[in-house]
């Protein structure tokens, strides 16, 4: 516990400040990057072989053992390297450095006893999935689902309080195009980490609507959504009004919030973070992802803090434009 003050929370209003302690993990045994790559390639080959086995049964003799070895190898490698412990430590260090409240999210597990359909979800994560399912589920335009591993409550340099949810994925870019092997910090690598993030903050003005601005699949302007005056903006965002308390269709309220400067910033956020957002009354929820391409823990740790801080600053950058 780091104090007794309250913090802003978009889901319940306020929460008492709390920073969960995380113990520093040991070094672990890190396997060379190429072994991970080989295991990933083996897993892909196994999946193809299992598909082929539907038409040519002997392929299963390769597919099933290969799948078991690759999955077992990847899980074993993660355990040896203490990947989960290092990730939690990374999250905790970020919160500690910035003085933010923080808690880890329990992974979503099947219950050991009872109904097989019962999947308990951490209550903090459940609130988010219920409030902004559009930003969390995978769908065309957002292939990677958002399942939180940690949550933060902090403030920007300009003292705008925010809530931030985070998830880390391992990235193997061996077969990917060159652009995926690079990150926004000038780094390049075949292995790296992808950080899926969602942030919420108070606009301090009730827009009177709930609007979804979600990524258009393939950056093509869909037909059945609200259009702004910008071709570039419409190509990137599928705009819909889900709830209109004013009762005039909500388009006027939405277009008031989407000033030219707001649209311009959102275009940049989409290009940088694949950002998409939900405007819910006076609260903005914005989701996006970014990556650090390096398999060295020190490099990832050094860039991770900057990545999250930059994302938070960028996400609130259009606040004063949405008049």
């Amino acid at each position: 516990m780091a104090g007794t003050r309250d913090i802003w929370d978009p889901f319940v209003g306020t929460l008492p400040f709390e920073r969960q302690k995380v113990a520093q993990p040991g070094e672990g045994v890190k396997l060379p990057g190429w072994i991970n790559t080989m295991l990933v390639l083996l897993a892909i080959a196994a999946a193809i072989a299992i598909f082929v086995a539907f038409f040519w049964r002997p392929a299963a003799w390769f597919g099933i053992p290969a799948l078991a070895i690759s999955v077992g190898g990847l899980i074993g490698g993660d355990t040896l390297a203490k990947t989960a412990g290092k990730r939690d430590w990374l999250f905790f260090r970020l919160a500690e450095k910035n003085g933010w409240a923080f808690r880890l999210i329990e992974p979503q597990m099947r219950a050991r006893r009872g109904s097989r359909s019962h999947r308990p979800v951490d209550p903090f994560a459940a609130r988010v999935y219920q409030k902004i399912p559009q930003l969390c589920r995978s769908r065309p335009g957002q292939l990677i689902p958002l399942q939180f591993q940690a949550m933060f409550w902090g403030g920007t340099k300009t003292d705008i309080p925010f809530w931030l949810g985070l998830q880390q994925y391992e990235v193997d870019a061996t077969l990917a195009v060159e652009a995926i092997k690079k990150d926004g910090f000038g780094g390049r690598g075949l292995q790296g980490k992808l950080f899926n993030m969602a942030i919420a903050y108070n606009l301090e003005r009730d827009t009177g609507i709930r609007a979804h601005l979600l990524a258009e699949p393939f950056d093509r302007d869909g037909w059945r959504d609200i259009k702004t005056e910008s071709v570039e903006f419409n190509r990137r965002f599928k705009i819909a009004i889900a709830d209109d308390r004013v009762g005039d269709g909500g388009q006027l309220a939405l277009l008031r919030a989407l000033t030219p400067a707001t649209q311009s910033v959102l275009i940049d956020l989409h290009d940088r973070y694949q950002a998409q957002l939900v405007i819910d009354g006076a609260t903005i929820y914005l989701a996006g992802h970014d990556r650090v391409m390096s398999d060295e823990d020190d490099v990832v740790a050094a860039r991770f803090g900057a990545l999250v801080e930059q994302f938070a600053e960028a996400a609130v950058s259009f606040k004063h434009f949405a008049e």
Binding site: V231, E232, T259, P260, A261, V265, H320, F321, E323
Partner: peptide, 17 residues
């Protein structure tokens, strides 16, 4: 200053169109 920002942004959006 805010209007200058909005002008610059509308100029960008217009030029995109």
């Amino acid at each position: 200053e805010e209007t200058e920002d909005q002008i610059a942004a509308s100029r960008r959006l217009y030029n995109g169109n």
